[in-house]
Write a protein that binds this DNA or RNA. Sequence first.
RNA 1: GGGCCCGUAGCUCAAGCGGAUAGAGCAUCGGAUUUCUAAUCCGGUGGUUGCAGGUUCGAGUCCUGCCGGGCCUACCA
Length: 677
Amino acid sequence: MYQYLESRVSQSVRDFLRRAYQLEIATLVVEQPPKIEFGEYALPIAFELARKLRKAPRKIAEEIVAGIGAVPGIAGFEVAGAGYINVRVNRAEAAGALAADQTPPVQQPAGKVLVEHSSINPNKAAHIGHLRNAILGDTFVRLLHFAGRDVDVQNYIDNTGVQVADVVVGFMHVEKKSRAEIEALASAPHFDFYCWDLYARVSRWYEEDKQNLAARAAALHAIEAGNNETAKIAELISIAVLRRHLETMERLDIEYDFLPRESEILRLHFWDAAFGKLKEAGVLTFENEGKNKGCWIMRRAGTAKTGAAESAGKSGESAETAEGAEKISEDDQKVIVRSNGTVGYVGKDIAYHMWKFGLLGRDFSYRKFFRYPNAHECWISTTPSDPEADSEHPHFGDVAEIYNVIDARQSEAQNTVIEALRELGHGEAADRYTHFSYEMVALTPRCAAEMGYELSEEEKARPWIEVSGRKGFGVKADDLIDTLIASARKEVDSRHPELSDAERASIATQIAIGALRYFMLKFTKPSVIAFDFKDALSFEGETGPYAQYAVVRATNIFRKGGLDADKFLSDSAGGLSADDLAKYLDGESGNGLWELWMAAAKTSYVVAQCIATTESAYLAKHAFQLAQLFNAFYHQHPILAEPDEARKKFLLATAAVVRRELMRVLAVMGITAPPVM
RNA sequence: GGGCCCGUAGCUCAAGCGGAUAGAGCAUCGGAUUUCUAAUCCGGUGGUUGCAGGUUCGAGUCCUGCCGGGCCUACCA
């Protein structure tokens, strides 16, 4: 509602400026006044136009206010201060629409959106860093769904890389286990935890004797080649760990549609197809000298093309320098194909992203992999020779827009992929490729010490300590979730001893997930989260449980009143006349209640902001503010004791509307409110 | 060396494209109608937005230079 009225105001003002001053304003700044008394929208446009029109800002504002005429849904425009134009909404009208849950139609961009997130190496348990990724990604998916977009959720599985190879080496060379023994372990609980420890042991084993690294290289080659014992072991490990990851994420209501694997990128020769096109377009060049001699390289993203510098006329290979393919300095070179002919990660990623946009001319084979309790099917890539390959699969890839939730450390690699697409002539695809970049989760030095990590003096002074999978140092996702549930369970037990064990367990789980998801969303993306159990385990103040509690309180009002909140809205709230609403919401006396209604009207506005900026912290902030306003309202108005029936009905409608919107916002964050708390 | 990011209250973080008196939570201090459960509410304390210039009606926000911190800069992924 708030969003819809804003676009109306914006449109009217732009129409007026065109009419009165022949001015085209592409994007009109519309702000929110600092105080509700000033109105719902504020336009600083007069300041901007003062110079252009050679008039005082206040004079311009007065002209706009005088000439703009009536705008549906808007009560009036007025000049404030030195030239602000404050806009007042027709409160009763807006509230009526909100109570009736009228959602104005919004035009939808065409085409499917692909969100890639999680992408955890399938060689050990997921940790808190992966949780931030998955929660950011899943929330973004929910935001897109809320906005009516068609979304595919993908989780890329690097099952042929060094990390999987290391655990394979661990089983085969350090623990000297047979395939049967590994299989038994893989089907036991917490296999991912077992691998977590083993991965750290292997890293130490490499350090003990560098000769041991030969085992890694051999394993890596065998895995890439496929069809051998080592590859089979790698497959069984990565599949088992992957299942564990899906189970962990399922605890947080995070689901995927498709799991593309690197093994299929290799087996189905995606790279060969991409390589041909890249060579043809001149994106890749063959390096004849220097440290990268014999490699196919491209320019690293972010490096200037002007770096001609002192490229002494040494280039004997005139063919390379012809046709504008200027020499890339060694520092600016990114190796895509190694001198031994194998392709690196960025190369595979280029091929994969060409597939995402439907530009590769090849496709995966698919088979069903994981069925969620709600019957949602998660598919995995496979080869045509797989007897389980299913031709009745959904159509993946070939999308209009993509978002890759990948931490900031990979932004250069991501940008290099984008550049490759652009240079291939797919500029429109490159423009719709968004690296959803966020900072890592680290541990506070105190938390690291609690985890048993020995800190140097220098480390103690640092703001955070980075987690390290190689050292086996970090907080595992399942452990954190268990700790949160146990902590919430203690609170629930003390507050609700009358409930059954199963009920208390279920409530504690909802609270734990609410706390965790909110915690990961409340920080803006560029902020490093210095993790600490004390903060993460907090259920008070700016937390998920605080917002859940507001919903529970609203629910309680209706339960005690013998009413159903949603039914009340659809049955009775329609009976609230515009006069009734105006009586309670208009004027100075209505400001407090109106502020709450207005906050509730902002859901779609906030969602649109979050999508446009790929920043879901606004969503968390909004949920908190709405809950905060509601809690104050709750305290101030004892609704069920209200003697005036008309006023009581209005207050109930207020609670019902806020409850509905708060539940919606929480749902977008992947948070549900328990029946009681 | 080059690229990207960060520096705001004691602590952790906010502050849409530059806008009205820089806001929350935690901590701390003091209060709250024995009520729709206090996982709540109300109030107090707490700021030269790292430093110095510049741009303009207006700068936490943009530009330049410093200071401090982080990440990236592999024929790893």
